[in-house]
Design a protein around this nucleic acid. Structure first.
Lengths: 112, 112
DNA sequence: TGGTCATATAACCATATAGTTAAACTATTG
DNA sequence: CAATAGTTTAACTATATGGTTATATGACCA
């Protein structure tokens, strides 16, 4: 049985996603599957140590997992849910949309 | 047509949700509908000015809206999507679950 | 075993964030 | 119009965060 996470744990997930670089990482992982750090560095164009620190944040909050393969470390999105939510938000942009709820996310989620 | 938000705008939404108090606010708004500030203060047990500042963050990122009614200001969840995602995450707790994706969020979200 | 590549960690600094207190609005009531 | 209630804003301080540089770890190869 899964014990319900505390609000602190939950908000830590949001916080982890609350940085442009980390969000880009999640988008890349979500759209292309597991990639190694150097690949992320190449695509995002940040310093390697910066990416590495961001990955550590994502990993510590359970958003991604990692596995070592030879010299490389491959990161994979664990919280596919997050990617779905991002896609959801992208359609319901910040200020332009009057709409409240994203139907494609809503489904069996209404039970308390 | 809605223009796709930038990754900065998107991450700002996550960042806004990335604080325990703000997440509590969203949970309350999501589960009970619009409430006034004093109600939130009562339920959460923070200083009123602190709540007010958190509400400003949520509002500026488009997560909630507000309307004045007499002396009170009522806040309402605009991004129902966020509440769904929270519920989703609650079922797929941080470390305990091996599962990757929350089916109740996933649906028509896969198209880029 | 020494060198090199991919990644992670440590130390440091500048900036952002959150909480607190005090003061300012704003709308209602008398 | 004064007093009051609900809410917001401003100013301040302590702490957290993010980026940078330098260094460490760990795996592969000569």
């Amino acid at each position: 049985m899964l014990d319900k996470p505390t609000v602190e744990e939950l908000s830590a997930v949001f916080k982890a996603l609350g940085h442009p670089t980390r969000l880009k990482i999640v988008e890349i992982l979500g759209s292309t599957g597991p990639v190694c750090v150097c690949e992320l560095v190449g695509q995002i164009g940040c310093d390697q140590t910066t990416i590495s620190k961001h990955l550590a944040v994502l990993k510590s909050t359970g958003v991604v997992t990692s596995r070592k393969e030879g010299l490389n470390v491959y990161y994979e999105l664990r919280l596919g849910c997050a990617y779905d939510f991002i896609k959801c938000l992208e359609r319901y942009s910040g200020r332009n949309s009057p709409g409240l709820t994203c139907e494609s996310c809503r489904q069996g989620s209404s039970g308390s």
